[in-house]
Simulated scan of single mutants.
Amino acid sequence: MLTPELWDPTTKVFSQLAPQAVPRTYHSVALLLPDGRVLSGGGGLCGGCATNHTDIEILTPPYLLNADGSAATRPTLSNVPADAQLGTSIAVKATTGVKAFALMRLSSNTHAVNNEQRRVPLSFTIGTAGEFILKIPADPGVVIPGYYMLFALNTNGVPSVSRTLRLH
């Protein structure tokens, strides 16, 4: 498949993006990077392929760009703890204009299938000092213990560069 798709969790609709230059089939990988871009690589020996593909492509999704193609302004995260317990809350600092937070589980990808990737939206409140208090879900079936990327998203849906958080 050459055409990546972008899921919109608000509208619950996929939209097609610009096609990849190289078919990414058997033994390929697609990984969400901490900066919100997507690494797509490997694959080969597909129906019309003459060889294996030992290269990668980096997709810059449209949510990282302004209409003119320049980089969109991103929120930033700071003071993120290194780890947290399921069912607790953590305090983080972020720039103003943040409207959402999401956890993205670090990937485990093989044979073009990613069994571990998941997005977990987090509810939050604002603390007395302006910090964001994020509620970590308690259900280990929703938040499997392990490492996650924490993203802050602004009102335009532009994500921060993530911070890694271990949940246990």
Rank of each mutant, 00 (worst) to 15 (best):
A138Y: 04
P81Q: 08
S160F: 00
K12P: 05
Q20P: 00
A30W: 00
H168V: 13
T95M: 05
I126P: 02
I56T: 12
A84S: 13
R105C: 07
G43L: 07
G47A: 10
S162F: 05
V98Q: 09
N115W: 14
Q85V: 07
W7H: 08
L17T: 06
C49Y: 02
Q16H: 04
F151H: 07
H111N: 15
L134F: 02
R37V: 04
V22Q: 07
A72Y: 04
V80Q: 07
N79S: 15
N156W: 06
P4Y: 00
H168I: 12
Y26G: 10
A112C: 09
A152I: 06
E131A: 12
I58W: 03
Y148I: 12
F101D: 08
P61H: 02
T11G: 06
G146I: 11
A67N: 11
R105F: 01
P23M: 06
N109V: 15
G146L: 09
S70C: 08
T54A: 14
A50Y: 11
G87H: 00
C49G: 11
F132R: 12
E57R: 00
K99W: 00
L153A: 08
S40Y: 09
T164A: 13
G69S: 08
S78V: 06
G127C: 10
G127S: 09
P137I: 01
E131T: 12
V161M: 02
A138M: 08
S40D: 14
A18R: 02
R166D: 10
T96I: 02
T73L: 13
P137V: 07
T60H: 03
S28E: 07
D68Q: 05
R118Q: 15
R118H: 09
T76E: 15
L17N: 01
G130T: 09
L2V: 10
S28H: 05
A82L: 11
M1W: 13
P159S: 05
K93C: 02
A21S: 13
H168Y: 11
